[in-house]
Amino acid sequence: MAYSEKVMDHFENPRNLGKMDNADGIGEVGNAKCGDIMKIYLKVDDGIISDVKFNTFGCASAIATSSMATEMIKGKPVEEALELSNKAVVEALDGLPPAKIHCSVLAEEAVKAAVADYYTKNGIELDPEIFGNGCGSDCAACDHCG
């Protein structure tokens, strides 16, 4: 199992690392039992993600995918952030080992969870087509760590 240079770069120098006071949306997904938790903070101005921060507990690929996902949504309209797929994150990192693909899924989920929190705080109804799928941190239903 070897990581790409891009993964190692984002692991070594994570972008948008940190916490945020007065965030407009916060999403946390994952489970310490499975070994990874991602927390993403959004600042939204006029429907645009003006700032984003993340905190992650997890392996190198969990840190790198969080970092890459935040970079990919920063400066974008909120709706566009919802279109971020785990596949796009993997591609942007020049690939992940098969056992680590779930980290990219988690990154996608974390972004969605942060947007969902932003929508909820602003009285915007959640579209079940977008927010209804995924693991939704339902750890009881997850067989990822057996």
Binding site: G35, C59, H102
Partner: peptide
């Protein structure tokens, strides 16, 4: 914290260790 990232940050400092047995890597548990 999680062991793999600890191990790889230490590796960036030149320290080679392991997290669990080497044979365990590849498994997520």
């Amino acid at each position: 914290i999680e062991g793999e990232s600890l191990l790889l940050y230490l590796d960036l400092k030149g320290i080679c260790g392991s997290s669990g047995s080497a044979c365990t890597s590849g498994s997520l548990d």
